[in-house]
Nucleic acid binder design. Structure first.
Lengths: 293, 293
DNA sequence: TCCCCTCTGTAACGAACGTTACATGATTTC
DNA sequence: GAAATCATGTAACGTTCGTTACAGAGGGGA
């Protein structure tokens, strides 16, 4: 029957043109309508799509089946996937005065592409963040009487480290969940309802990170989540979610937008009770000086 | 049948931001998710959308109703319409309508300022990087037969962590200099002329970091330095220097531009010998799979 | 600490959906 | 020109969807 190879996914359009000559008259009408208004036409209901093309519902079903799908929703899912991918690549837009030293040299192009992709990510991400949401998260951290826990995945743990160093200068009771995930249970022991967990989790969402977050919530901790636009499963039990764009069109995802979003949150926390932070920094510097000089 | 008037219809995104401050906590999660993955998230079923955000179906319905729609399919129709319009004008419009949710609200201004400051930093920084310099640094890491050492200061150690995790997937012999600086001497023991030190040091240049770098150079290691525009003292004995802008006009400096520059370097290293990297990643995944499944 | 109010999830309903079996109509073949 | 075959629509099925009523949970104010 069907060889489900996820490796090299042909687009729906390709599947249609491939089977084009085996299609009947009515099915060709459907094919033309779908390719003509691709892929939106295929995202409507069977009935709507059928009526628009002047055929019956079963014809649509047979069409979907013939071009290689198990069901109509199956085809829709694929179309949605393609659309999503297409929407997220408004990359390679030239607005920079393209500095001369970049012309010609392949590395110059890489620099340019990375700058464009990441700045685009940052702009889009922060423009879509709800200020009230940010405000709430800031207050949650700033007014938290318990501890603030930091946790990240493989690559995002760097962000947790970064957040840890900053938060430590602003308030006490900041803890980083680090090391082998098997040992995280020990950290979990102390987590309670007065605590906040700031967790970073982007795609290839890590099972151990999700498990920790879930356990923390069960112990009534509040979760602030930094994730990507597709939302980590942690979003389901997080109090505040900050989705940012991570794609750059290169091999790896970028944490730049997450970093900026984090820095914005940290700045907000600092501004929330400035005198406390200032006093703390002053105290810290006093403690540091004597032994050094 | 339907009168398609594109003229005065507010977008769904605008309707959300307009009612943003009347939304409840759960509804905000929905809003964040929808705006973060706009508009695909809203084209899913109520149940799917609800589950993804960790709320119940009725909450989704109330959300749709609150932002001004008669029904959920009603909202979907509008989203589809916007999407269709956007797809048919491929290059004319840039990504999203500038959300007005940032005006007025103090956090909105903060978000805007941070986005502007960091994107400006990134553009300026990367535009001033010499592609040839980048190329050389990439080759230095990519062709390095010895070890690559990673080191950062108080806040920049997060970047070292980030670089470590990435480089480890691309090559062997990657070491991070971490822990108490008093113990760094032990790492220094092994540093030799076949080794490369990738060091991060921005203002308030840390004495211990500088000392390590200096010692490494004395043992004939090559140094690649990420620093700010005023240059860490390490620049004096570094082979390659990448200065980036870090100012944002806020209390703390930003590492976003450094992060992007680092990601650019990492991407370059990956592209430098792609087959080796691919083989290594494949091997890594094979080693990881068995115990999990 | 208690109470009130808002927010939220559970459960049930009807409607619409995708799907299937079957009959009708069109087309081809001998 | 009759029979067989294919394409297509009709009608009914079970499922899933969007929707609503209601009860419980949670947070804020006195």
């Amino acid at each position: 029957m069907d060889a489900k190879q996820q490796a090299t996914k042909p687009t729906v359009a390709e599947q249609i043109t491939q089977k084009a000559d085996t299609l009947t008259a009515s099915e060709r009408k459907l094919a033309q309508a779908l390719l003509g208004n691709y892929p939106m036409a295929g995202l409507e209901t069977v009935a709507t799509f059928a009526e628009r093309c002047g055929v019956s519902a079963p014809t649509v079903l047979r069409f979907a089946s013939k071009i290689g799908f198990d069901s109509y929703p199956d085809m829709q899912a694929r179309l949605r996937g393609e659309l999503e991918a297409r929407l997220q690549s408004p990359l390679t837009r030239s607005s920079l005065p393209r500095s001369r030293n970049h012309s010609g040299h392949p590395m110059g192009e890489l620099l340019h592409e990375m700058a464009e992709a990441t700045t685009s990510n940052i702009r889009t991400s922060l423009a879509n963040i709800n200020p009230a949401e940010l405000q709430s998260a800031i207050e949650l951290i700033g007014d938290c009487k318990g501890s603030v826990y930091l946790l990240g995945g493989r690559f995002t743990s760097a962000l947790a480290v970064y957040a840890y160093e900053h938060l430590r200068t602003m308030r006490s009771h900041v803890r980083r969940v680090s090391g082998q995930s098997a040992k995280w249970a020990e950290d979990l022991l102390d987590v309670g309802k007065r605590d906040v967990l700031l967790v970073f989790d982007v795609r290839r969402y890590q099972a151990d990170v999700i498990a920790f977050a879930e356990a923390a919530v069960r112990q009534d901790a509040k979760i602030i989540l930094f994730t990507d636009q597709w939302l980590s499963p942690i979003a389901q039990f997080a109090r505040h979610v900050f989705p940012v764009r991570i794609e750059t069109g290169t091999t790896w995802d970028s944490s730049a937008a997450s970093m900026v979003m984090l820095e914005t949150l940290l700045e907000g926390v600092g501004q929330h009770n400035p005198e406390q932070v200032r006093a703390r920094i002053k105290h810290l510097e006093m403690l540091r000086r004597p032994p050094q000089s």
